[in-house]
Design a protein around this nucleic acid. Structure first.
Lengths: 206, 206
DNA sequence: ACAGCCATGTAACTTGTTACATGATTTT
DNA sequence: AAAATCATGTAACAAGTTACATGGCTGT
């Protein structure tokens, strides 16, 4: 939903046409997040369907201008006011791959981890180079670009540390520690035995 | 593609029926990544269409067993042998939101950052609690669960550090440093002026 | 003239989510 | 009897990507 909300937020600054929205989005993220043009037009149609934006006039150049609606403005405010969601299942390719691979008998998890580590390190190097270029460049566009790249550097560093951490933990365990055969347990049907109730904490924990 | 490849990798261990695949996937990720059942059936159909899996027999309980094909096995091997892709545009909700918000005049980026920091810290606390529980539990399932949760802890820590980093950098700049009005530049059409050729580096940089 | 951007739009497709319908089984 | 799981499947939808069609404009 980030693209959708971002485009709406840009539209909040004034009427735009589709192609312009893409340019603005890429400019504001410092070119670090290319946006497909087709997606802009799709998104605009969906925003219109949801009553958050409305198709406006076409100027002499054939530019179709879009405007934000009151509901759209409220949506942008909500987006900015409330933190990003953490509910959904995080589908992290790297993490899930390692977790699943570690459970597969006959798969050399060590090799998988080594290959991922190499690739992550290479990726990190490339990111650091881009990030330091961006940090040296002047102007507000370079600033947001630099921030986005920094975030990726931080994320890649965390991945790399985790890969090393995972390799250590898996190595500490005897042999292919986490391997799991297909479960042979017959599934139990019907209502499961009720778990004992968890007592309410006497004090709030947060 | 992670779910798809993971299911195929599990299928590589022996024939499974749909529901079982979901159970196995969740078991192998230690329950840290719930998987929608509907998606399993969809995925199986698509694997069949792509020739990577085949619908097999139905047993007396009505379980529809699926088998991996040779092409499927090759696909699993490829998945395990090659590191996860880093090409696509990373659509990080948090990062893009902050980057775009920082360019919006009239938006108190400081407040946005503070709210995100609070939420990230709370999320991190919850993750740490889960991760330390999982680390103490015995068995291979707890190990993969623990690894997945550790990865999320590392990622959340990186996000938190980045949020602080971003707040500092934005504060260091005068006022709403990164705000950008809608570009008033007339776009230039036609072929752009040719850039001077970049000389090839004399030495490999990696 | 041609390459290449500017600009709009459509269609098909992918992965993934959600909701629904159906029915058997089993425990409380 | 009710609740909850086991198990299959369908349909609709959401977000996003890719490819295509169309045409205007402009610098080399």
């Amino acid at each position: 939903m980030t693209v959708r909300e971002s485009l709406l937020a840009i539209l909040d600054q004034g009427p735009c046409y589709g192609y312009q929205l893409r340019t603005e989005f890429e400019r504001r993220t410092g070119g670090s997040s290319p946006l497909n043009v087709g997606q802009v037009y799709n998104t605009l149609d969906r925003l219109e369907r949801d009553g958050l934006a409305a198709k406006g006039d076409t100027d002499e150049h054939g530019h179709v201008y879009w405007q934000i609606t009151d509901a759209g403005r409220a949506d942008v405010r909500r987006w900015l006011d409330s933190p990003v969601g953490r509910d959904g299942a995080v589908r992290d390719d790297l993490v899930l791959k390692v977790a699943v691979a570690a459970t597969l008998p006959g798969v050399p998890t060590v090799d998988v981890l080594r290959a991922e580590r190499r690739a992550t390190r290479a990726h990190l190097d490339a990111l650091i180079a881009q990030a330091s270029d961006a940090a040296a460049a002047p102007g507000p566009e370079a600033l947001t670009r630099s921030l986005v790249l920094d975030a990726r550097v931080f994320a890649a560093e965390a991945e790399l540390r985790w890969l090393e951490h995972a390799a250590e933990r898996l190595a500490r365990h005897p042999e292919h520690s986490a391997t799991l055969a297909l479960s042979t347990e017959r599934p139990k049907r019907g209502r499961p035995a009720a778990a004992p109730p968890v007592p309410e904490p006497a004090f709030a924990t947060r």
